[in-house]
Design a protein around this nucleic acid. Sequence first.
DNA 1: GTTTTTTCTGAACAAACGTTCAGATAGCGT
DNA 2: ACGCTATCTGAACGTTTGTTCAGAAAAAAC
Lengths: 195, 195
Amino acid sequence: MARTAGSHSDITGPRIQDAALRLFARHGYAAVSMRQIAREVGVQAGALYNYTPDKQSLLFGLMQDHMRELLATWAARSQVPDPGAALETFTRFHIRFHLERPDEVFIAYMELRNLTPENHAAISDLRGRYEDALESILKRGVAAGVFDVADTKIATLAVIAMLNGVNTWYRAGGRLSLEQVETIYWDMVRKAVGL
Amino acid sequence: MARTAGSHSDITGPRIQDAALRLFARHGYAAVSMRQIAREVGVQAGALYNYTPDKQSLLFGLMQDHMRELLATWAARSQVPDPGAALETFTRFHIRFHLERPDEVFIAYMELRNLTPENHAAISDLRGRYEDALESILKRGVAAGVFDVADTKIATLAVIAMLNGVNTWYRAGGRLSLEQVETIYWDMVRKAVGL
DNA sequence: GTTTTTTCTGAACAAACGTTCAGATAGCGT
DNA sequence: ACGCTATCTGAACGTTTGTTCAGAAAAAAC
C-alpha cells in the first residue's frame, strides 16, 4: 500500500497540528509519541515527516504560531489613549483570547523547558514583547498619575499571572459567563493598580 | 560487584529524592529516566527500586510531601483574628514558602497530569485545602465588611495565581530583596481586595 | 491516456525505556 | 570471628522511542 484515497497535504497538515496540539496539552510533549499523533490523524508515523522535520519542530511551530497570533491580534486593536481604558481593554482581551485557546496557552506555558535553547530564546522573546505591551500601558498610567504602581515590571508579571489563572478553572457553560468573568477580573486588576 | 562501600539507606534514600526532584523540575517527569536519576546519585538504576516501588510513586511522594509540608507549616501559624492582618500574613507566608522551594512548587503545579487518577485526586484534595485556607480569610473579611470582593472563590484563585507568578522571575541576589518583593505583592493584593 | 508529482505505507534501525532478579559484597549484631 | 541482613551491581526482559527510506498508489499535469 502507499498513498491513500483522499489524502491531501492541505488536509493532513492541519490535522497533524491539531492532533499534536491536543495531545501535547493533555499529556505533555515528552509523554506523547509520534505514533500516537499519527494514530490520531489516521496515518502511519512515517507520514508525519512530510510535514515536520522532527518532533521538536512540531512543538516549536505550535508555540510560535500561538505567540505570533497573540501579538498580531493585540497589535491589530486600535489603541486607546486613556491608560485606564487601555488597561481594561487589555484585561478583557487577554482573558477572552486565552480562554478561546486553552490548549495553545497550556503548551506555551508548560512546554518551554522542552524547547532547544534556540527555540526557547525565540519564544521567550515573543513572550517578552507581549509583556511589554502591558507594561507600556502601566507606565503610561503611572506617568499620567492615574495608576498607583510601585514597580511596573512586577505589576506586569503579577497581572498576567493572575489573568492566566482563569484558564485553570473556567469552563464554558459554568456558573459564570465569559462577560462576568472578565468583569470580575477587571475589577481586581483595576483596584490592584490603584485606579 | 554488589553492595558498595559507604552505602546506607539513610543516605541513598534522600539523595534519590533530591535528584528526582531536581531533574523532574528541570526536564519534566516524562523526560527523565530512572537511569538519569540513578546516575545523578551515583548508583545503578536497579538500586532505585529499594526505595520506590516505581517511578510514579517517586513523583507522587515528592508532591505529597510538599503539599503536606505546606499545609502543616501554615496550620502551625497562629491565626490572626483581623482579616486584613490575616491576609497579609498569608501573602507573605505564601511568597516566602514558595520561593524557598522552587523545584517542589514547579513540580506540584506542572506534573499533575502525569499522576494516576488516584494520585491526582489526592494531590488536588491537598491543594483544595490550601485554597480553602485563603478563601476562609477572604470570607471573614467580606463578612466583616472590610474586603470588597465580588466572588471569594475566584478571588482566591486569582490571588494564588498572582503570587505563584513570583517563582517564574524572582532570583535571590537580584534587584529586589525578598522583603521588598513581599511588600510589593502585598500592596497589590491589599488593593485588589479593596482594603 | 500517459507521465509526473505528491502522499503515504510498512518495514527497519539503533537506542532508550521501566522494571526484575540472581548473585555479590559491606556493615552490623553477636 | 562468624553469620545475617541490608544494599547494590550487572545483566537481562520485552516494549517503545524518533527517525529513515524504498516502493507503491492516488492525484495532478499534460
